[in-house]
Amino acid sequence: METNKNAKIINNNIKIYVAGHQGLVGSAIIRNLQSKGYDNIVTQTRQDLDLMDKAAVDAFLDQEKPLVVIDAAAKVGGIHANDNYPAEFIYNNLSIQNNLIDGAYRAGVQKFVFLGSSCIYPKMADQPLKEEYLLTGALEPTNEWYAVAKIAGIKMCQAYRQQYGFDAISLMPTNLYGPGDNFDLQNSHVLPALIRKFHEAKIRQDTTVSIWGTGAPKREFLYVDDMADATVFLLENYSDAEIVNVGTGEDVSIKALAQLVQYIVGFNGELVFDANKPDGTPRKLLDVNKLHQQGWQAKTDLAIGIQQTYGWFLDNQGYLRIEQ
């Protein structure tokens, strides 16, 4: 690994632009930066800055001149959203990341952090997923549009490092969840969708809840505040072209996850698994040895993270708390 040639720029007074600061990951990164004393953070809402408008992005970066840019902006969603909006998933994400990476380089940004996704890896790759498995096989068809865009972002960061010496690093988080998540039943990821589904079934006193797929696939889940902590840690300590997996190194079946969410929410009915719905990738567990060797490990237990996420959901979605 290269030494961090820009380590000297990382101090609490540097100007940091967090793109996508209102999203699940971006808001957690803001919280983490502030907790560590970074107080010169720049943000822009979608209304103020369209990240798909290159001229607007270039003008903003040239005016603000941040020394660090963290790209947490993306169009994201679960299997249903990826299946139904493939054009938006590839076009929007390519546009956003291209504008930010190129604009940051041209504006003199000293450190760029690109956030990818574990879905970049081949569908049938060996488990756990090592960083070197990238581009060694076919992608999972249900999210290939998003994955192709994220792979392009990785390669763009590597290309700008190789040609221009631009210090861009790429982090590959596993499935994220936590406060600020999207709980839409159609377009969200599996964990927040389960929280809402069980909560509403509990309110209605339903006797059953239907779950997409067989329940057999296994997934890894990382609490978003842990992801934010890893992001800031690697911003401060890592500088290399190679990607870094960010996860817990542990996974759980969708069935076991559903049962855990059911228990935490307090739904007393029966689970019904709909095998007619797609399962997606059979297993997706990250090898996080590289991250551990850098000196960082996840801290939040899955059950505790789900409890905190459910509490946030109750406090922010207009629902009344119902004692179990």
Rank of each mutant, 00 (worst) to 15 (best):
E242L: 12
Y85F: 15
F273W: 04
D229Q: 08
V109K: 03
S239N: 12
P192I: 06
H292V: 10
Y164L: 11
W296H: 08
L194D: 09
S27V: 00
K197V: 00
V68K: 01
N12V: 05
I151C: 06
L176Q: 10
T136W: 04
L176A: 12
Q163A: 13
Q324S: 12
S118Q: 13
A72E: 08
L257G: 07
V224S: 05
N82R: 00
S95R: 12
S210M: 11
N32P: 02
N182R: 08
R283F: 00
T136M: 01
R196L: 09
M172R: 14
I211T: 03
L271S: 06
Y164K: 15
K255F: 08
D39V: 10
P217K: 04
A256G: 09
A193W: 11
E200G: 00
P128K: 08
N40G: 01
G249R: 04
G153M: 05
V246I: 15
A228W: 02
E140A: 14
L191W: 05
Q317G: 11
A275G: 11
A81N: 11
S118M: 12
L271P: 01
A59R: 09
G305T: 09
V265L: 00
A7I: 14
D126R: 10
Y85C: 09
V18Y: 05
D102T: 15
F198S: 05
Q293C: 11
H80K: 14
K202C: 07
P217W: 02
K8I: 07
A241C: 10
D39E: 14
G215W: 00
G249C: 03
Y164W: 10
L176W: 03
D53G: 08
A107P: 06
Y177L: 07
L314A: 07
E250N: 13
Y223S: 01
L24G: 08
I195L: 09
L302Y: 02
L185R: 12
Q259C: 05
K197E: 09
E2D: 14
L234T: 14
A168V: 09
A256L: 11
E64S: 09
N289P: 00
F166G: 07
L24C: 07
R321L: 11
S188F: 04
A73M: 04
I304L: 15
S170H: 05
T136D: 06
Y146S: 07
K155Q: 15
L171F: 10
